[in-house]
Design a protein around this nucleic acid. Structure first.
Lengths: 263, 263
DNA sequence: TGTCAAGAAACTTTATAGAATTTTTTCACT
DNA sequence: AGTGAAAAAATTCTATAAAGTTTCTTGACA
């Protein structure tokens, strides 16, 4: 998935995949912002491909829940409220706990100890270590969650968790400015402690405790993000009341006013 | 979404939606069977539309998990193993329990009592009442689960549950002959008892008990379906080892042998 | 004359169709 | 089995039709 001058360089039959990845990255990195209207033609020109694979990629993204598809009216990057994030996190909590309980006793002790050591090394933050600190903290976070999902013995569950992680990350990055998020290392240090509690329970082979530690961890995260979240977000997206459309939930949404999409 | 002779009758901009619905119905009803290869051109001709909306509909179905998308090699109706069904049910269990706990205390008592009465009327089956019995049992089942999901206060969770229900239903109907499934009224009577336990806990306002009753209900269902399930299902789908593809989990699957898709 | 609303026209964007291209599969032949 | 052409199917592109949006015009009314 490398873009080369005008055309997206990829094998025949992988173009849609490459476009999905490219758009996801742009959403994650904030180049595409919440409420933004995505015009197929523009994207096609920008990526040096025709509209067909762009449209198909957008359908996929709508399926994931990254964008809203408004029939006959195009696609907008989803705008989310604090409630949306909480709702997603609640689902994530239920599934992460389930996965944690399942994974208990199925992970190599050596690997758990390794992660525990890495976590302990994150307890102290110095200003000098900050740049690498953030990177390291995120890496360990990913490693632990992925390990648990992969070790749950349930590939379907692992995939659902992966999807939720992606959604959560997208919305988090859409909603907050990156700098603000990245610099909050206090939360990262807290997370290290929460993670360690999970790992220790896993090492002890106590599935119940591990599940509870995971629940605590996610609840703490929700609390943090909710606090940081702006109270309300006005709708740049105002669907026509007559048009059928799909929100993040796939359910129909009735618009309040007849207003056009922001271009 | 009415098909009229050759062309799918629907408004401009809703064609993909109509095709998705149509294909879902065919999968549910068993006209499209597990492992079957779906050729865009054939579907296009059959529905009297061009390949474009067909392809788009198939992308959507792949997102839902009803079909597998094999890049450059087409689309096949997913074939599932007993393990797949168990995996899905495990996720469903976690989420249904969460929803049940949340919904506790948020549902009108009158409605719960109404459902309880309907359930109690399902305890006794006579041969004469069998035809309507099955219909009634399914209706109450849907009503209760939908009510709980809708009352959870979490639209995202409700939507996830809906997706899982659809998946489960699709795979169940794909895998078993319909007659066999429909005629097992003993299981339906058992379900009525399990459902009643949930409703009674909800009436009592005991979220914990309601969650546990729901867990029991789903576990019982899994046990039943697993018993009825054929032990293994060989793969009619055999991907080439070099080709990237998405299984139900979106994860890459490596094929064992270099073999072509069954046509 | 100025303002506002309704409607027409121009323009933009989306949705679908059909053709061109690339890849995969089939099948005859060695 | 291995090879290579032919056929089939998937992917992508281009073009056109349909819908949505904006701008402009017209005319009623203060």
């Amino acid at each position: 998935m490398v873009r080369n001058g005008r055309t997206l360089k990829c094998h025949h039959g992988q173009r849609r995949y490459a476009i999905v990845q490219s758009l996801l990255t742009e959403v994650f990195q904030g180049q595409l912002r919440a409420g933004q209207h995505l015009v197929a033609q523009d994207l096609a020109k920008r990526m040096g491909v025709s509209q067909t694979p762009i449209r198909e990629a957008l359908i996929e993204l709508a399926g994931i829940g990254i964008v809203d598809w408004l029939p006959n009216r195009g696609v907008v990057v989803r705008r989310v409220t604090a409630k949306d994030v909480r709702d997603i996190c609640q689902v994530r909590k239920a599934l992460e706990c389930e996965a944690t309980r399942c994974a208990c006793g199925r992970i190599e002790l050596a690997e758990l100890h390794e992660i525990a050591d890495e976590l302990r090394s994150l307890f102290k933050v110095t200003l000098r270590s900050l740049p690498t600190y953030i990177q390291k903290a995120r890496a360990v976070d990913s490693r632990l969650h992925d390990l648990i999902a992969a070790s749950s013995g349930n590939p379907f569950l692992a995939n659902e968790l992966n999807r939720l992680k992606m959604l959560f990350r997208a919305f988090r990055d859409i909603t907050y400015s990156r700098r603000e998020v990245m610099s909050d290392y206090r939360r990262l240090a807290d997370e290290a402690h929460e993670h360690l509690a999970i790992v220790e329970a896993l090492i002890a082979g106590d599935a119940r405790a591990a599940g509870k530690a995971m629940a605590r961890h996610i609840r703490a995260g929700v609390k943090y993000w909710t606090r940081a979240m702006p109270l309300t977000l006005d709708g740049a997206i105002r669907p026509r009341s007559t048009t059928r459309e799909q929100g993040i939930n796939g359910t129909s949404v009735n618009g309040v006013a007849k207003r056009s999409i922001r271009r």
